[in-house]
Simulated scan of single mutants.
Amino acid sequence: MHRGKGMKFVGDSRVPAEKKPNIPKDYSEYPGKTEAFWPNFLLREWMVGAVFLVGYLVLTVAHPAPLERVADPTDSGYIPLPDWYFLFLYQLLKYEFAAGPYTVMGAVVIPGIAFGALLLAPWLDKGSERRPLKRPIATSLMLLGFISVFFLTWESVDQHDWEAAAEQGEITDDVDMEVDESAEGYQIFESQDSCIGCHGGDMLGGSSGPNMFESDYDTEEVIEIITNGKGAMPAGQFEGSEEELETLAAFIANDGQSADGGDAEAEEDGSEEEAEEATEE
């Protein structure tokens, strides 16, 4: 018999001579251990999702969103605070090595390296071990990231001035306080960047300046405060002529209304009273 004639060489007896297609077994072959994706598994997931959705809706009704007053883009003294999941980045930008001329480091480079390390962790540590102590690289990166985020978030919450934030964001009833934006005094105020930066574009105050109509000052007292300053307000901030200063002071003393308009209304009231008296006589 010639070599190979009438013989079938298989080699290792553990390797089948004919390859079978790699078809997974049907879930019915594992009774009690598996179930059909549709409709059993998917229906259960939908029910759990519906329960959580109803819970979230109840929370939104019971605890409304903590809204603040209408945003004022001219209020440069406003202290912003991002949502809780961005507090660690917010705190990172407060440090010298990640702020000012190094903002790119704090906003792009450092977060990019940190998140990049977490994404590359599965490729940096390809061990088959599942225990954390047996995977030092992946475990170290995870612990370092968690500790850093936790520490920065804690520091941000601890250092934030919550009382000032509550005051600056307090919603006030401004129905009765309508500033006459067509008045000459308001036009003069809009030209003063230093005033807007502290008291806001609506003159109702910001985090570093109070409402300009809270105190009952007359025109002379307002001029004295603008010229010489008071408390944290520095002197010599007004840029304009004496006539403009007097017009602005009268506008503030008249609670955001044109002083001329007020005088005109007073004159009209007086003339009406005189007319009524003359009619009675």
Rank of each mutant, 00 (worst) to 15 (best):
E268Y: 12
Y27H: 11
M7V: 13
A114D: 01
P82R: 04
L120G: 04
V51C: 05
P73E: 02
G261L: 10
L124Y: 07
P64A: 08
S191F: 04
G197Q: 12
A264G: 13
F238S: 03
E214A: 14
E280V: 15
D255P: 03
E178C: 05
P73C: 02
Y78V: 02
G236H: 01
S241A: 01
G106W: 02
A117D: 05
D161Y: 11
A98W: 07
D26L: 06
E265W: 14
G116F: 00
F86L: 10
T34Y: 10
D260F: 13
G200M: 07
Q187R: 14
D216R: 04
T153M: 13
T219K: 12
Y217T: 08
M177T: 14
Y85A: 05
G100T: 01
G11S: 11
V104I: 02
D176P: 02
T279H: 15
K126I: 03
P73M: 01
G11C: 03
E276K: 13
S156F: 10
R131A: 13
D83I: 12
V179N: 10
E220K: 15
A138D: 06
P82H: 06
K19W: 05
S156Y: 11
I171R: 10
L59R: 06
T227C: 00
S208E: 12
A98L: 07
G256S: 01
A117V: 01
V157I: 15
G11H: 14
E267S: 13
D263P: 09
E29V: 05
L204I: 09
F146C: 12
N22H: 04
I226T: 01
F189Y: 15
N228D: 10
S194T: 14
T74Y: 05
K19C: 04
D158R: 14
A71Q: 00
G77M: 00
T74I: 00
E68I: 05
E181S: 13
S241D: 08
A266S: 13
G185S: 13
